[in-house]
Design a protein around this nucleic acid. Structure first.
Lengths: 184, 184
DNA sequence: CATTGCTCCGAATGAGGTTCGCTATTGAAA
DNA sequence: TTTCAATAGCGAACCTCATTCGGAGCAATG
């Protein structure tokens, strides 16, 4: 059966453009807390049948909303009790490739380019302060690295992956006593 | 059946004291990358049968090595494209309770106490720069908060949960050209 | 040398993931 | 307004896989 170009152009809008509805948000919230839930349980929590949530979860995966399903390891009890954030000052913007190569080390969990008084921000978790020192030595061995500032974590009060919920009042509440809302 | 105190004292050593062997490490590595693996697949990868890995994974869970199994959400495509690290200077050490209450906001992903020129470090992910501003307003509304410094993430090159692997050479390699190893 | 406990494996069972066909609903075209 | 097509939902069925059970090999203990 031949399909008209007109119909096709309407129907084949990119799937990732479709916005998340309330069902999707609740599914994401549940799975971000516990991905070991059965589809039957998940369905009863959000008010859908098992095949229906299965279909939605599959789409959330293929469209990239869900990046993966992983086991969260506990740093201290798996041999990496030392956590630190390292700010890196480097010369030039194009020379950051060697910094990105640090991604091969399992101790390096995050590499961000940030706006502020530093260029790059690393989150590293390793087995000892000596290992942290070794990582800093690797940094300083790079010609482009000018300086670093390390923030060693003393206590972690909260640490979790991205959450599904959003605080709507964050965008409006604070401005109530300060100025009128200038948005349209 | 009564058990002798002697046997009990020997047998009931804390389970978390048992060190991880090579099998455990490989299992943790696989599950940290993909927790949706079947036990049969996981077993064939590490060289054990399905019931054997099942038993080990169960123990890794109960002993806290595995904190949970979760779906990793993609921030930008789930409505939170803005990521920032906020350093907080606060007066006094006991007054941090109001900071810890921020954990109720789904935008706040991490709260650490750090050593360095700041007291606390937050990782926050929210829907807009305006929401980030609202969160900063909440911070400054706290009497104990003296100052904040924000690092807005421009690009994220790497972001992943704790990994199982460890770079052994980090503890030794760097010191080779500097000084002799002083460890026993 | 006997015993105790641990961990592994193969087999069996039952729960749950996955697919299929059908129906209701929505939105667009005639 | 009528008609058509596509979507998303559900119940039932299938089939994979998680989970349990019993037994064997092994190490450490007394």
């Amino acid at each position: 059966m031949p399909n008209t170009g007109k119909t096709e152009s309407v129907r084949s809008r990119p799937p990732e453009a479709r916005p998340l509805d309330a069902f999707d948000r609740r599914i994401l919230g549940e799975l971000a807390a516990d991905a070991a839930l059965s589809y039957a349980d998940l369905g009863s929590r959000v008010g859908l049948s098992a095949p229906a949530v299965h279909e939605r979860v599959k789409r959330l995966r293929t469209t990239g909303r869900i990046r993966g399903t992983v086991a969260l390891l506990d740093g201290p009890s798996t041999g990496k009790p030392f956590l630190a954030f390292v700010h890196v000052d480097s010369t030039g913007w194009g020379k950051t490739q060697e910094l990105l190569d640090l991604a091969e080390l399992p101790e390096v969990e995050e590499i961000h380019s940030v706006a502020g008084d530093t260029c790059m921000l690393l989150k590293v978790r390793c087995q000892s302060s000596r290992a942290l020192e070794g990582l800093l030595a690797r940094l300083y061995a790079m010609p482009s690295v000018k300086a670093t500032r390390s923030y060693v974590v003393l206590s972690t009060y909260l640490e979790r992956p991205p959450q599904a919920g959003m605080t709507e009042t964050l965008e409006t509440e604070w401005a109530a006593g300060e100025a009128d809302d200038t948005r349209p």
